[in-house]
Design a binder for these strands. Structure first.
Lengths: 376, 376
DNA sequence: TTGTATGCGTTATCAT
DNA sequence: ATGATAACGCATACAA
């Protein structure tokens, strides 16, 4: 043990009493490893590991104490990477979002992130930028990182992608948009109820010619459900309400002219009856508002409007935007909560959690010409 | 090799011709490892690894081809976890955000996420929820995961935290808020220029009694810079402009009464001169708008307003909100870009990248009583 | 109760 | 040019 070769060390002898040949006392600012702690505490790595993971299996108080101080002294914390490699799980949760631009997504993100943090999970974010083709890419990248589970708020176009994740045994929770027959928890607003809330409100306010404006339905479940709910509301209620009529319109990002035309023909159809729009989310709402600005129409008076998603700016658009508020924070929290329960071992058939929306009535749904300055 | 013990396998012999004892051909849906590929291609793990990482060191075309098909056949992709453990880097970037609620943060996040994705990095998100005490917690959690670098948009109150990250050799880029004398790249809007843009615009429009409204300045650099810029604009310009006067106000989340009072005393001070507000970000802008709604004042006519941050809803608040647009997407992209350059080995002294803002003039900064309906 | 040894999936340092 | 092998930091089955 004495005459070992120390690479790169000449045998110059200084006035050091005991040469103390221990391996270089750890490079200045590298993270301490479990081995360092073990050495410091004079125990084996296994003991340290047990102290960390199985505090139930009794250790000698003496030893436990030594390990504890060593850990504190070295500011040791285990490497999640190594743990992940060994355990197969990572305390990471993958969050895939269709579009971070959408206020709804951000709000959900916010709730989910908070819940994850509290449970000691970190979030890996993947934004699709509304490009559904990248969905499977996202899942792949995230599974590569051994995320323990997924929160998905995607178009679900590439159903296979998410399904594969589930097949790998990773729990998945879908938010707002359900994928076709997937084994996964699902957290969403009660779309049927929410649409009813908005539609009834408009009818009660006196509007009769209704238009449901949505982003391209494609196969997005929430859009389909909302549109279907609107349609059936109209056909159910029409017999009882004189002059009630409804139609729908899909509005793309780049075709503002099309939207203008749709709104004009709406009022034309109305022939004196009051007409109104239900918009399927905040992005669409803003498009409708922009169209009305172009047309020089007044919210409420010339055209009623109730939009999905309550935002901080809803109160301040024109006479105030009436909206159908979603409990976004709660949705995010619940989604994360579901996932974490599963990760803790909960084994139940897929659940559906439907939260109800809340109507926030403002000036955009009152037909009487309203004073045009701001009001809360 | 024949009579080895297969744990849990009785020696029952079926009509299988060749027993083909190879280790269970991989549990159905586990990810393929480099060993699987090696076996499939009939080469060593080392060769596969070289094929992946050192395509420059020539491999026999024959072998390379075999490896290639094996990889494709098994849909193999390396485990970032294992790579991280071995290499010490993870292709992960930590993004710490003071407040995901702030539209500015989200916009930056969006730009950064895109750039990272393109460069093959994934984003780990940590939201502080405006709780600066959790800053070091965030850094710690993220370093634990071996993130290769940080993008920080935080209060910087806990300067030590970020500094420590830098000390660990991890590159750091600060967005919008610089920390006290930290060795890090810094990406931001040119605050002085931006404030000038807004202030000059208001003065040109005829406003004379100016109020700068900000969130609590604390030690946040961007808030300090903006406030200072406002102050020096006023003192510089006052000699040349009759009746010009300016003051500042810090507005907290919960004290709407205080804001109301501040605005009222502003108009009182004005004594007939036109008064206006510059707000330091979108959150504050909304607070000011809310206050004006409470007071029943008209934007532009009763009080001028120019706010930092252009949003999708800016055009539709009252007569349109005049704003100082920040190139948020670009800021995010640049931040990520800086970081990735560093990760590629670039070794330069810390850079400062300042982008200039753009004034978007709308109705909220024209004093003439404007038609109250929406206009773009 | 504690220590020893092995393996998780990679990469890198040796040989060959 | 390719193959065996030893880490990386940790958890665990097994031995003591």
């Amino acid at each position: 043990m004495n005459t070992q070769k120390l690479p790169g060390s000449t045998t110059l002898t200084l006035s050091m009493p005991t040469p103390k040949i221990k391996p270089p006392p750890a490079p200045p600012h590298a993270r301490a490893t479990i081995a360092d702690v073990a050495r410091e505490a004079g125990v084996s790595k296994a003991t340290v590991s047990r102290f960390l993971n199985h505090r139930d299996t009794l250790l000698t108080p003496d030893i436990a104490a030594r390990v504890e101080v060593a850990i504190a002294a070295l500011a040791y914390s285990p490497s999640p990477m190594a743990q992940g490699l060994k355990r197969g799980r990572s305390r990471l949760i993958g969050l895939v979002v269709a579009d971070v631009t959408n206020p709804f997504s951000v709000a959900v993100l916010r709730g989910a992130e908070k819940a994850c943090q509290q449970a000691g999970y970190l979030l890996m974010l993947f934004n699709l930028g509304n490009d559904s083709r990248r969905e499977s890419e996202a899942i792949k990248a995230l599974t590569a990182y051994q995320v323990d589970g997924f929160i998905l708020n995607t178009l679900g176009g590439d159903a296979g992608a998410a399904a594969e994740a589930a097949r790998h045994g990773k729990p998945v929770v879908l938010v707002d948009r359900r994928h076709h027959d997937m084994q996964a928890d699902f957290v969403s607003i009660d779309n049927v109820g929410a649409v009813l809330l908005g539609a009834r409100h408009l009818v009660e306010a006196g509007y009769r010619e209704l238009l449901f404006v949505s982003e391209p339905i494609k196969n997005v479940s929430s859009r389909m459900e909302r549109e279907a709910a609107f349609r059936s509301f109209v056909s159910d209620a029409a017999p009882d309400i004189a002059g009630l009529h409804g139609s729908t319109f899909e509005c793309t990002d780049d075709d503002s002219a099309g939207l203008d035309k749709a709104l004009q023909s709406l009022r034309q159809r109305a022939e004196g009856r009051l007409s109104a729009v239900i918009s399927s989310n905040a992005v669409v709402t803003l498009r409708v508002v922009a169209a009305m600005a172009r047309l020089g129409w007044r919210l409420g008076a010339d055209l009623g409007l109730v939009g999905f998603d309550e935002t901080e700016w809803s109160p301040f658009i024109g006479p105030g935007l009436s909206s159908i508020a979603q409990p976004t924070d709660e949705l995010g929290r619940l989604a994360a909560g579901c996932l974490i329960e599963r990760l803790k071992g909960l084994d139940l058939p897929p659940r559906q959690i439907l939260l109800s929306g809340r109507l926030v009535a403002r000036g955009s749904s009152v037909p009487q010409a309203s004073p045009v300055n701001l009001q809360t």
